[in-house]
């Protein structure tokens, strides 16, 4: 596995604020890598450090083996899709897409052909002569994608590219992006605060919190084996069991995490007071209190659904209770 982007001990401080605090990161070539975290967690700053819009306060950044500090953005072999797309309003769609080729000195005819090809790729072949203001949000997003990809970057950086789209469009674009990445085979670095998006698309996920990377791993790692209560809480709505409860079950005083779908109704187990019930279609989410700890479970279609204020018995497999040793 060749390293595409490597960050070693990278920090970015604004005065006393540590936007990015001593990060180590190694993104492999051809990987679809997601950076996940709440807003202000440092994921976007990390992306900007890779793109070259920010300089690290300390630390080293390597892009395809070359030291990147001191290299301006326009010399880096990466391209960015901005959160607001940043399409040039004074240029039409084709000229927007051809912009990178134009500044590189590609003749008009050749760059227009490449731009048209790139627009075909994102299914906007007929929109070349329009102004960005005449496009819908999803169309603009694709133009931004085509504009970045037409330069054949070694890595594509995407800053919350789907954030401004509505749910249906977002799901559609998620699939398209994934397919695109597979067909192009280039590295995608994807910033998002939507854990579902990160888990469904990425090969690996880095979870950010307060300027640091809390956990890096495959979506399964992150989902099933969160390293800390923060990850468990942020990635999917895991039940976090406090150390006391875990101690009473297993004798070890650490946090435990339990996926809602791992909890089931049982004849024997733990008494639970049902506090609310929500029908989700494919499943039903039930909130309850177990020994004063709030927990949720997902009951599959066809299961008996308890009522609010019922007291029931719930249980789970011991192997599903994941212990978290990080604080």
């Amino acid at each position: 596995m060749t390293s595409a982007i490597r960050l070693s001990g990278v920090s970015r401080h604004y005065g006393a604020v540590k936007a990015v605090d001593n990060i180590d990161l190694d993104i492999a070539e051809g990987e679809f890598f997601a950076m996940l975290g709440p807003s202000g967690s440092g994921k976007t700053t990390t992306l900007r450090l890779i793109a070259g819009f920010e300089r690290p306060t300390v630390g080293e950044i390597h892009i395809y083996g070359e030291v990147a500090q001191g290299i301006p953005p326009y010399k880096r072999p990466v391209n960015t899709v901005f959160q607001d797309y940043a399409l040039f309003p004074h240029l039409n769609v084709r000229d927007n897409v051809a912009y990178g080729l134009m500044v590189a000195g590609v003749p008009k005819f050749a760059r227009h052909r490449s731009a048209n090809d790139a627009l075909e790729m994102v299914a906007l072949g007929a929109y070349g002569s329009r102004k960005p203001s005449e496009l819908s949000g999803g169309q603009r997003q694709r133009v931004a994608l085509a504009r970045a990809l037409v330069n054949n970057p070694k890595a594509l950086l995407l800053d919350e590219p789907l954030g401004a789209l509505d749910l249906k469009l977002r799901e559609q674009m998620q699939e398209e992006l994934k397919a695109l990445q597979r067909s192009l085979g280039i590295t995608f670095v994807f910033v998002t605060h939507d854990q579902g998006e990160a888990l469904s698309m990425a090969d690996r996920v880095a979870v950010f919190n307060e300027g640091r990377i809390v956990q890096i791993g495959t979506p399964e790692d992150i989902y099933y084996r969160p390293i800390s209560p923060f990850v468990a809480d942020f990635v999917g709505s895991s039940n976090v069991l406090p150390p006391k409860l875990v101690a009473s079950l297993l004798g070890r005083e650490v946090y435990g995490s339990l996926r809602p779908e791992a909890v089931y109704l049982s004849d024997q187990g733990h008494a639970a007071l049902i506090t609310s019930v929500s029908f989700l279609g494919a499943a039903t989410r039930v909130s309850m209190a177990v020994s004063d700890v709030a927990m949720t479970m997902l009951l599959p279609k066809g299961a008996t659904i308890p009522k609010v204020d019922d007291i029931v018995q719930v249980n789970w497999e011991a192997s599903d209770l994941h212990l978290m040793f990080a604080p």
């Binding site: 793109a51 953005p73 326009y74 391209n79 040039f88 912009y99 134009m102 500044v103 504009r147 330069n151």
Partner: peptide
């Protein structure tokens, strides 16, 4: 971000000035 996008797409500062 317009200016960053331009630089990101390979435009040198004077090109960014001229074209964006």
């Amino acid at each position: 971000t317009m200016l960053e996008a331009s630089g990101d797409l390979g435009a040198r500062p004077y090109q960014t000035f001229r074209h964006v």
